Computed example of a mutant assay.
Amino acid sequence: MNNHLSKTIKNEMFSHHYQLLYNLNDFKPFGVEILFRSSLFSNPQRAFQKAKELNKLYELETTSISKAITDIHLNSIQGQIPDHLFINVYPSTLIHDDFVKTMKNLIEQTSISASNIVFEINEEELITDHYSLHNAASNLKEEGFHIAVDDFGKGYGSIQTVIEIEPSYIKMDKFFADEIEYSTHKQEMLKSMVTYCEKIKSNIVLEGIETPEQFFKARELGIKLGQGFLLARPCPLEDL
């Protein structure tokens, strides 16, 4: 399996799909999330789990990001580039000593600026070194990149991460969209998060919007940004 993964990374035997995020008020595209895909693994998560087991997670993530950004750069030559590119990153990759330098070198070779890129902190990995994560996020923000906390309410230590990192975006897990039109508890939680985000000058994004009822209730609650199958499904770059 080690050779299998090494071959995947070296030969870039993977691709990406892209899912649009929308402004719920005017229904205009706001940005796009970049999603890893590989036919060599049963699901994308499995590829990263195996990379983590074999101590190749940083190599896989940076290679994947490089390919995605390069592909978007080549597409942007034709005048098409989303304003905000959301990219999932594990905390251990974010705090790697070379990550900030590698990302700076990458964008310097493209037409994409740091302000276009939003690194989503993947909350599926337990954060044990909050000090290093805070420093890494601060360094990235100083270079013009944005930070998001992904799947808020699902993973490890989301609240602590939000308070310490002060992200530009907080992406609420799809759990909150499910039956949002019926659940007063979810509605109150989301209203509280909208108020909190306004105070810290962050942006709330509701993931998993799949029905018109969820869409209208989210907008009624003051949520401005959304993502989900009702709005757009993941697709190859050429179909975006």
Rank of each mutant, 00 (worst) to 15 (best):
M103P: 03
Q78N: 10
I121V: 10
I127P: 01
R37D: 11
L24P: 00
V100F: 10
Q78R: 08
S38G: 01
T70N: 03
L20R: 15
P82D: 08
A137Q: 02
S66H: 10
L40P: 06
E125K: 12
I77M: 09
A136V: 13
S111F: 01
L85S: 13
I117K: 05
S42P: 01
S39C: 13
E123K: 09
E120G: 04
P91V: 15
F86N: 10
F27T: 07
A68F: 01
D26V: 05
I117Q: 07
E61S: 15
N55A: 13
L94D: 01
S113A: 12
I77K: 08
H17E: 15
S132A: 02
S42M: 08
H16G: 09
I34P: 00
G79P: 06
L74F: 06
L126G: 02
T70V: 05
T93P: 00
S113F: 06
L57K: 10
D129L: 00
L85V: 10
Y58R: 05
T62E: 13
I127L: 03
N25H: 05
N135R: 09
E125F: 04
L24W: 01
T102L: 08
Q49Y: 01
P29Q: 11
E125Y: 11
E124Q: 08
D26T: 15
H17M: 04
L133S: 03
N105S: 11
D129M: 13
T128G: 09
A136P: 02
K50A: 08
F27L: 15
D98A: 05
I65T: 12
T63Q: 14
T128F: 06
P44D: 00
K67P: 03
S64N: 08
I95F: 14
F30K: 07
I107K: 01
S111W: 02
L21T: 01
I121G: 07
N75I: 07
I117C: 01
T93G: 11
D98G: 06
R46P: 07
Q78A: 05
T62M: 05
L40Y: 15
L85W: 08
T110V: 08
E53I: 13
S92D: 15
G79W: 02
K67G: 11
V32T: 12
Q78Y: 09
N23I: 05
A114K: 03
H134V: 06
I34F: 04
S111V: 11
I81V: 06
F48M: 10
T63C: 15
N55F: 11
S42H: 00
S39Q: 10
D98E: 03
G79R: 03
L21R: 05
Q80E: 11
D71R: 07
L85N: 09
D71V: 12
N122W: 09
L57R: 05
Q45K: 15
G31S: 14
E59R: 06
S92V: 15
I112A: 09
Q80W: 04
H17L: 12
Y22Q: 01
P82L: 13
F86Q: 07
E123N: 12
K28M: 01
D98R: 12
K28A: 10
I69C: 09
P29K: 03
I121A: 03
V32M: 13
Q80D: 12
F86K: 12
T70A: 13
S113H: 00
S113C: 07
Q109S: 14
L60S: 08
Q109V: 14
Y18S: 08
N43Y: 00
D129P: 07
H16W: 05
